[in-house]
Simulated assay, not measured.
Amino acid sequence: MTPVQFDVLDPIKLPLVSRLYKAYYPSGRAKKDELTIVGKCDQQVVAVVRFKAIEDNRLLTGMLVVPEFRHQGLGHQLISYCEKHVLQSGDFCFAYSELESFYQQHGFFTLDSDSLPNTLRGLFERYSQKKSLAAMQYG
């Protein structure tokens, strides 16, 4: 496999990510006001994660690795890139419960939803009604 290159996506190229989400993660929506990091292999986007500013906080959201590229360590590579270049102490993540240990390997710790800032707590409560999620914080 050709090495994957990670970088910040120019917002003008968001349609590439939108097509990816539509195909593999329909609830994901890339927006121009978010920081979007992509992994590319042979000029094809194969991994993506977004960081959404919510008041004074930042939420890691919408992480996706294209199915045929899964189980090759790309998720770890993507988060490792973010650890070096993007993540800041205090960033948050609402991880699927089955991915909690994945994020813990990359510096996130689980917190009680009552410890979340008010705006994030409301989002977490809404999202976790339909999905089994863990509230997590980086640092």
Rank of each mutant, 00 (worst) to 15 (best):
E98K: 11
H106A: 14
G139L: 11
L133T: 02
I79N: 00
C82T: 00
D10C: 05
Q77V: 00
A135S: 10
S128F: 04
P26W: 02
R19V: 07
F94S: 01
R70G: 06
Q137H: 03
E68Q: 15
P67N: 08
L123T: 14
L14T: 01
E68C: 12
L16R: 04
E68H: 15
H85G: 07
H85M: 15
R58M: 06
D114I: 11
Q5P: 03
S18H: 05
L64Q: 11
F92H: 08
G139C: 07
V8A: 12
S113L: 06
Y25H: 04
D7W: 11
D33G: 00
L111Y: 08
L16F: 04
K22F: 11
I54N: 01
P3A: 09
A134G: 04
N118G: 02
D42Y: 09
A135W: 05
N118H: 13
S18N: 10
C82M: 10
G90P: 14
K130A: 12
T110F: 05
V38F: 02
K84Y: 09
P26Y: 02
Y81P: 02
Q88D: 14
Q104C: 15
K40R: 10
A47S: 11
K22L: 13
Q88V: 15
G75C: 14
Y127W: 05
E83L: 14
P67T: 08
Y24P: 14
S89Y: 07
G39C: 09
F92Q: 06
F6Q: 06
M1G: 14
G90F: 04
S89P: 09
L74K: 07
Q72G: 12
V48L: 13
D91Q: 04
L20I: 04
F92S: 03
L64F: 03
S113P: 11
D114E: 14
Y21W: 08
Q137V: 15
E34F: 00
Y24A: 11
V48R: 13
F94Y: 01
S101H: 13
P15H: 04
E98R: 10
Q105S: 09
L99G: 10
P67W: 09
V86H: 02
E125A: 05
S89C: 11
G39N: 13
Y25R: 13
E68T: 10
K13D: 15
Q43W: 08
Y138K: 05
S113A: 10
Y21I: 04
F51Q: 00
M136P: 02
D112I: 08
H85A: 12
A53M: 10
Q104V: 13
